[in-house]
Nucleic acid binder design. Structure first.
Lengths: 222, 222
DNA sequence: CAAGTATTCAATAGAGTACTTGAATAGTAT
DNA sequence: ATACTATTCAAGTACTCTATTGAATACTTG
C-alpha cells in the first residue's frame, strides 16, 4: 500500500464517523442516548421519527461504532459506546456555537416569542428565592447536578419531569435552568411545565454563568 | 417557532458542521491547514486534488465557519478559524481510532513495524529535553517548520534525513514528529534512523496538538 | 492597456442519502 | 401452534454531494 493511499483511507474512516454525525436526527437520537440506554420505539417516540427510520439511523450509528446495542426479549436497547463519544459531541457543539452566526440567528428568532419564554435574570431570581416566591429546578442529568448547582435548586432531570411533577408546589412559579444559554433542556422543561398548567420561566444563562457571577452555589467539594 | 422546530434547527446546524467534516479530502485539507496558512494552489498540490475541486471544498469549510480566508494579491490564503477546530478534529480522530477496527486494520497493514515504533508522550518528552537526554527533530518541510515548531526542535525534512545525519549526536535518543498523530513522515523518519543504528522514537501527536496543549513553541511571529 | 495567473463560478453526470411503505424475522404470550 | 409485538429488511422516489470541465472574475505585471 502506498503512503498516499494509506493516508487517504485513514481519512476516509474519520470521514465515516463525521458522516454519521452529519444528520440532525441522528444527533438528536444521540442526545437522548447520552442520558442512558433506550429502546428503538422509545427513541422513535421522543424523536418523532418512524420506527423504521429510527432503526435505520441507529444502525448507521452502530456501523461506525458510535453506539452499541443489546437485545433483551423483544426489545433492542441502544446506548452510546463510551464517554469519548460525549466528548466528541460536546466538541462539535462548541465549535458550532462559536463559529456559526446562523445559530445565534436561530436563537434570536426563537426568543422573539418573549412573552412565552421570557427568561428571568439572576438578580431577580435571587430576590424571588429570598421572598419564597419561586421553586428552582435543575433539569440537567443527576451527575452534573451533583458536581455543582445553584444553592437551593432541586434536581429534576428532564426525563423525570413528568413523573416528579408532584415535587413542585402548584402555587409557586417554577424557574428552570440547565447548562448554559443555549442548552435546550430548560426550554423544553418550561414548555412542558406550561402544558401542565404551571407557571414557569427559564433562568437567563445556566449553571456556569451563575457560578462565574459569584452567586451562591452548592458543590460536591471534591 | 415551536420548541421542537427550534431544537431540530439547532441540531441541523451542528449537523452542518459534521457534514463539512464528513469527506476525506476536506479532512486532509484541514490537516494541512492545521500546520498554518496555505494558498489554494498549495493545498491543491499537496492534496492531489484539482484546483477547482480544492476551491469548492474550501468554500464548504468556510461556509460552516471552520476556516477563514484572506486575499493578498493574486492569492487567497486559508487558515483554520481557531484552536477549538483542532480540538474537534482530534476528538473525531480519537473516537474513530477507539471504535473502528477498520482503522487498526489499515494501520497494521501499512505499519507492520507499529509496535517497534512506540510513541513518546508530550510530558515525558518535555522532561527528557530538560534532562538533555534527547534530540528533537521536526521532519516537516522547511516552510512548515518556519511557521512554528516545538521549542528547541531542529528541522530536518525527511528528504534530507540521510544527508543531515551528522547534525544528530550519536549518543542521544532522537525524537521525531511531524504534522499530527497520523502523519507518516515521523514513522518513516524513525524507521530510517533505526536502520542507521540510532535510537529513535516518534512523538505522540504532532505540532498542532503540542501547541494547543500549551506546550512551548517557537513561531515566526508574523 | 494587454497578457498572464490564481481563484471562483456554472453546468453536468454519476453516486450516495433520507424517508416511506410493506414484508420478513425473532421473540413473547395465550 | 397461533396471535401478537418490536425490530429489521428491501425497494422505490426525491433529493443532495463529488468531481470534472470550461468559462468568468479579479488582480498583477510589463
Amino acid at each position: 500500500m502506498s503512503i498516499v493511499n494509506f493516508k487517504h483511507d485513514l481519512f476516509a474512516q474519520f470521514a465515516r464517523v463525521a458522516k454519521a454525525l452529519s444528520n440532525a436526527n441522528r444527533l438528536e437520537l444521540m442526545e437522548f442516548l447520552a442520558q442512558g440506554e433506550r429502546s428503538v420505539d422509545a427513541l422513535a417516540e421522543v424523536s418523532g421519527l418512524s420506527v423504521a427510520n429510527t432503526s435505520q439511523h441507529l444502525q448507521q450509528l452502530r456501523q461506525t461504532g458510535l453506539v452499541l446495542s443489546r437485545k433483551q426479549g423483544l426489545k433492542v436497547y441502544y446506548r452510546l459506546s463510551g464517554d469519548d463519544v460525549i466528548a466528541l459531541l460536546d466538541s462539535l457543539r462548541s465549535v458550532a456555537e462559536a463559529r456559526m452566526a446562523e445559530i445565534d440567528r436561530l436563537i434570536n428568532a426563537y426568543l422573539t416569542i418573549k412573552d412565552k419564554l421570557e427568561p428571568i435574570a439572576s438578580e431577580e431570581l435571587l430576590q424571588r428565592v429570598k421572598d419564597g416566591l419561586v421553586t428552582v429546578i435543575d433539569v440537567r442529568p443527576a451527575e452534573e447536578y451533583k458536581a455543582g448547582h445553584l444553592k437551593g435548586a432541586i434536581n429534576i432531570p428532564l426525563t423525570e419531569l413528568d413523573s416528579q411533577l408532584e415535587k413542585l408546589g402548584k402555587e409557586k412559579e417554577v424557574i428552570a435552568y440547565c447548562r448554559g444559554p443555549h442548552c435546550v433542556l430548560a426550554y423544553d422543561a418550561v414548555a412542558r411545565l406550561r402544558k401542565k398548567g404551571r407557571t414557569a420561566r427559564r433562568l437567563e444563562g445556566g449553571y456556569p454563568e451563575w457560578r462565574v457571577a459569584g452567586l451562591p452555589v452548592e458543590t460536591s467539594d471534591k
